[in-house]
Design a protein around this nucleic acid. Structure first.
Lengths: 216, 216
DNA sequence: ACTTCCGATCCTTGA
DNA sequence: TCAAGGATCGGAAGT
């Protein structure tokens, strides 16, 4: 049985009965609320607004400068603003200078202060809104593991553990384990003792001890 | 007469001779510098790094977790980080769950702290880099908002070391470091003490000690 | 990134 | 108090 993570998404009243509103309701654990949003189309978390810009609409709002106004308004009214570009703005068929599109996208990414997200199509948009909502509400379902796969053979484990130390690669790890006899002995060693090992200088020794004694 | 706005763009040495490097040099007013960047592919302004991710490469780096590592590194080393996604990640032909792509894009936009930009193709990428550079250098008198980026937190290092232990993943690693106060304390703990931590039973505790005391 | 699956852990029950 | 059962959580592997 898969866990369903409940999320609330607020949909602007003008969009509520759209295909996206329906698709959102159909996703597991989503409760769709409707409200009149003065800026943005969706609230994907409290204070996080999303403005959906279908490619053609994006071009239009670049040309008539509505985009900048809308973005400014969103930023003023919410903690975080995201522009969700749906479709390829370079392939709308509208007769518009590519420089204008380049400029608008660059501005959005660098200067505007909003975040930008891309959806290839209307079909994907609801999933992305949902995923954002889940992540913002529940965080990632797990921690991002800090290191890759670990060995299963016990003899390799000692070396692998020691390799986690800063400045220590495979060669030094082997030297350390050989010198001290076990991983535990390495990890309990003093800075002085560590320096005695070939490949470990004052700098590495210091950072090892530093890493080991630092707590949360 | 068209005004040419001079900009400098730093290209990582590995990318310098690529088609993009050449295309950048050909753009008006662009002076391309080369440097070895430890993270990111381009510096589009001082302190503003751009990582180019071709769609297929994006998928690959999601699967092997490289993406998160790279993003973290960029955020730590620059004032501002931008991921430039080139192409449609949903159409790479790679056999990957769409949920994973949704999740990664949502994470990039909402949680990661980077900004995201989309380029439809390799041909457009240089133009977008250039446009960003121009806007950041000459753009409208805006200051680049600096988000404070601390270097890697020390507690992360402790957790990293502890994660090397058998049977210990991100969650348990955090519990262990929290319980014992430091990585060293965890590694010097007795089997008994280890068992007291939530998530560590007799079996895990035994294999941890086993790994620590075993030599090479 | 997500999902599925499996095993270990933990928690409640009831004797 | 303990054992047994099921619910829960974490890890590993695959997409």
């Amino acid at each position: 049985m898969v866990e369903v993570k409940p999320v609330e998404i607020v949909v602007d009243s003008r969009e509520a009965s759209s295909r996206i509103g329906e698709a959102l309701s159909a996703l597991p654990g989503v409760s769709v609320q409707t409200a009149e949003l003065s800026s943005g189309d969706y609230l994907v978390a409290p204070g996080v607004a999303v403005e959906r810009k279908e490619a053609l609409d994006l071009i239009a709002s670049i040309l008539d400068r509505r985009l900048f106004e809308q973005v400014g308004k969103m930023l003023g009214e919410h903690d975080r603003a995201i522009v969700l570009v749906e479709g390829d703005p370079y392939k709308t068929g509208r007769d518009v200078a590519v420089e204008a599109i380049d400029g608008a996208l660059a501005w959005l990414a660098c200067l505007s202060g909003v975040h930008v997200m891309y959806s290839p199509s209307l079909a994907v948009t609801p999933r992305l809104l949902w995923r954002m909502a889940v992540q913002l509400r529940h965080g990632l379902g797990y921690e991002i593991p800090l290191r890759g796969n670990k060995p299963k053979q016990p003899w390799a484990q000692a070396q692998f553990i020691v390799e986690g130390l800063p400045g220590v690669g495979p060669t030094t790890a082997r030297a350390l384990v050989a010198h001290f006899g076990s991983a535990r002995a390495v990890l309990c060693a003093s800075e002085e003792d560590l320096r005695a090992v070939k490949g470990v200088g004052p700098k590495t020794a210091a950072s090892i001890v530093q890493a080991l004694v630092s707590g949360i």
